[in-house]
Design a protein around this nucleic acid. Structure first.
Lengths: 259, 259
DNA sequence: CCAATAATGTGGTACTTTCCACATTATTCT
DNA sequence: AGAATAATGTGGAAAGTACCACATTATTGG
């Protein structure tokens, strides 16, 4: 597996991140921004296009996933950048041959995009998210297993008893989970049925990686997903502080701040 | 006052339509297709961009509208009108409160669109197609149940043993099935796993409606889905002829020609 | 550390797009 | 019909992009 920190892979990730917040990029802009020749930028786009991550146009490229990313106002675009960084850091944890479970949500969708851009080698993905599924399905060597269930229109994901019991039939190396909040009691979410799906994934994975941006810290929502101790690793964009930081340290969770 | 039928307005409409089925258009292509100079095509895009309908790129434009469909191939694009008519006719069979199963495919996707436009009253939809699911999920009073399975990238649908056994847990009033061909032996398909899913739906539905356009008549493909006698109704765009017509009459299948 | 390989840059040519001013051709209004 | 206006085409210069072969510079694996 190529090092995620190689210059090329980094550019690829940033290109994908860029396309998450705007519909098109231009080769000349990319070349200037990355400080590389236009030829290199062109080769980047060519490669990503080959892998099905984006579509080439004359002079640039367009995103292939229009339909999932409204992201218009500046604040949203900012959040996209944070989530994209988190996604990239998380993608580095995935090794060839892994079986991973991916929750639904905007952060995990960014994670899927980063994975699509960075991945080389076989991978099996089980998810209840349509966005994650469609992002990864065109990538070579990736097998996507989509969970059944009642389709939730807002989240574009499957929930319900069927979803939970289906997940129970699999084992995974890693589960990547999002949440609406992270408290000293554990991750929380506004939606009960989403919590049940997250729990099911956590139960069936050797390790659980929680992906939340720092705005979620200390946000209490309807339901606690699981105790902090069930989370193996936290990936976020800024280090937790105070009580939350102490609670995290107490349970021995490793924290990675994506930069 | 701008006439809607002016050449310019017509081009504008066609450009927008084009961007509904592909992510990007190129000025040189548009100029050639419309038989106008590239300068005119450029002015078209410039104007549409000004009005917020699309986003300019170097050499072309990309759609600003979110929520479109996965790539359809060139051949499919031509038969859109026929399939749309078939879809509308099929939608008339669906009554409030029904439980329907919908196969994956371009014709059944058109059917889902027609259903979304025509529907009044509650409906439960079980499908293995991501396109069908996303088309219907936002419609009020429609419950969408998405089958599990291995996601097939080309078809944007779920297939496999899980899909089949999941379908076996439900009962439906109607199953809407597509096929690559229709012969005197029954509907045929190029893909074995797709056949298995169709069979499962047919098995669990009181009545089965087959949606195929007339270009599929007498097309033999890899595998026969089921005998003709298992199909309750055929909806197509032109009446079958010769042996096929006689075979259809013999089993008492009703035929509806959508116009 | 060296050799092999991957990634990147360079330079040149051919092609494409942009932009602009202006000519030409519809179309509309009275 | 005739004038005014809108739409479109033309041509050329400037800029941008694609493509290719090859040189140069990392990076990787022994």
């Amino acid at each position: 597996m190529p090092r995620v920190s190689s210059k090329k892979a980094l550019r690829h990730q940033q290109i994908v991140a860029e396309l998450a917040s705007r519909p098109a990029v231009r080769i000349s802009q990319l070349a200037e921004r990355f400080g590389v020749s236009t030829e290199t930028a062109r080769r980047d786009l060519e490669e990503l296009s080959q892998r099905g991550v984006l579509d080439r146009t004359y002079g640039g490229a367009v995103t292939r996933y229009i339909g999932f990313q409204p992201a218009v106002n500046e604040r949203d675009r900012h959040a996209v950048a944070e989530r994209s960084r988190i996604g990239r850091a998380a993608a580095a944890l995935v090794k060839p041959g892994h079986v991973v479970m991916i929750d639904s949500g905007s952060t995990t969708t960014q994670f899927a995009r980063a994975l699509a851009a960075a991945l080389a080698g076989p991978l099996t993905v089980l998810t209840n998210s349509l966005a994650v599924a469609t992002t990864l399905v065109d990538i070579a060597d990736v097998r996507v297993i989509l969970c059944p269930g009642d389709l939730n229109g807002r989240e574009r994901g499957n929930y319900g008893a069927d979803t939970v019991s289906y997940i129970g039939r699999y084992f995974a190396d890693l589960a990547f989970i999002g949440a609406s909040g992270l408290t000293t009691d554990g991750p929380t979410d506004v939606e009960s049925r989403a919590c049940a799906v997250k729990r099911a994934m956590i139960e069936r994975a050797r390790r659980t990686v929680l992906l939340v941006d720092s705005t979620k810290f200390d946000q209490k929502h309807l339901e606690v997903v699981c105790p902090l101790s069930r989370i193996s690793e936290l990936i976020t964009d800024a280090a937790p502080q105070g009580r939350l930081a102490r609670a995290i340290a107490r349970v021995g969770m490793s924290v990675r701040v994506a930069k």
